[in-house]
Design a protein around this nucleic acid. Structure first.
Lengths: 169, 169
DNA sequence: TAAGATTGACTCTTCAATCTTC
DNA sequence: GAAGATTGAAGAGTCAATCTTA
């Protein structure tokens, strides 16, 4: 599984230099940050999926499970889940169906809306989410590198950019 | 195309509060940052692909083109491209084949290694990359929201995290 | 044996089209 | 008509297995 070899230099910093040398001084920084985000997402996703594999989960399905865990009744309409997770309705259907097949949640018609569907966490789903979170917390979330103060500031800046990009109001 | 509706609050900040309320105070910040990165990548990717669509490109293929643009000869072995872009060899094959079909690059055996393949930028490829970059610079990279000083610091912190995650040495 | 590249299977994502119900 | 949900198609990513050459 050593496919993504470690480079002896930062390829994005190198790209930034190239950009600055091609009369693109101004957007070079933005390009570097967008590329860094893209790369970091891949790294995190790979690590998360490796941690979640023993539980039969992927990061996308883990997020669905955690969303239900945090809901008051352990259930939620599919449309609301899509809003919260910011994913397409088609993705929600796909993820929920897989989790239902795994017995981690059940689907049922929404009594409040004949068009809607409700996803409801099963005891097995709650149990799996709990155990998976323990691993995610220790193996991925606990230590990203920089210290707490820097990470607090980072979270704030990322929020500002997400807001500027229209992710929320 | 208004599928990803804008929420009146930040769903990740909400998740952070939930995390902190479930005896996971310590990893809550790391979870929030990982999730923010995941979400921001989706937002950037969607915007980038919308900008690149008129050129018949996707962000992944655009990166391949730009890498070749910056190489001295306009050509590079596929394996080296995978290292630089930090993507799987299978992805490189796929992307290069698509770009070759579009006439934006050509494939040829590597004279220095009988096992290898070289991708070489065509004039059309160089032209397309140049025009696409103009749009990417003005529509995406030029203004991410925060001012220059904050973005410089952000780029540095992201680099630290990528390094801690083993993206480069 | 190891490295470069390719293929096929699987997951996740979006988009477009469709069906049912409000 | 609009909203909730589903389906199918296309793109991109991983992994595992394979083929060829060093």
């Amino acid at each position: 599984v050593v496919d993504r070899r470690k480079l002896p230099f930062d390829p994005i910093a190198e790209a930034k230099r190239q950009w600055e040398g091609h009369a693109w001084e101004s957007p070079a920084l933005g390009m570097s940050i967008v590329t860094s985000i893209m790369r970091l997402q891949q790294v995190f996703l790979t690590q998360a999926n490796a941690i979640l594999r023993p539980f039969g989960l992927t990061f996308a399905r883990y997020e669905v499970l955690m969303l239900l865990t945090f809901s008051s009744q352990g259930s939620m309409p599919l449309g609301k889940m899509g809003e919260r997770l910011q994913v397409n309705a088609a993705s929600v259907t796909n993820l929920v169906d897989r989790l239902a097949t795994q017995g981690l949640l059940t689907k049922s018609p929404n009594p409040a809306d004949g068009r809607g569907t409700l996803a409801h966490l099963t005891p097995a789903g709650r149990e799996t989410a709990q155990r998976a979170t323990k691993e995610m917390n220790t193996q991925l979330f606990a230590d990203l590198g920089p210290d707490r103060v820097v990470l607090e500031e980072l979270f704030h800046v990322l929020g500002t950019i997400r807001q500027a990009a229209g992710d929320f109001e």
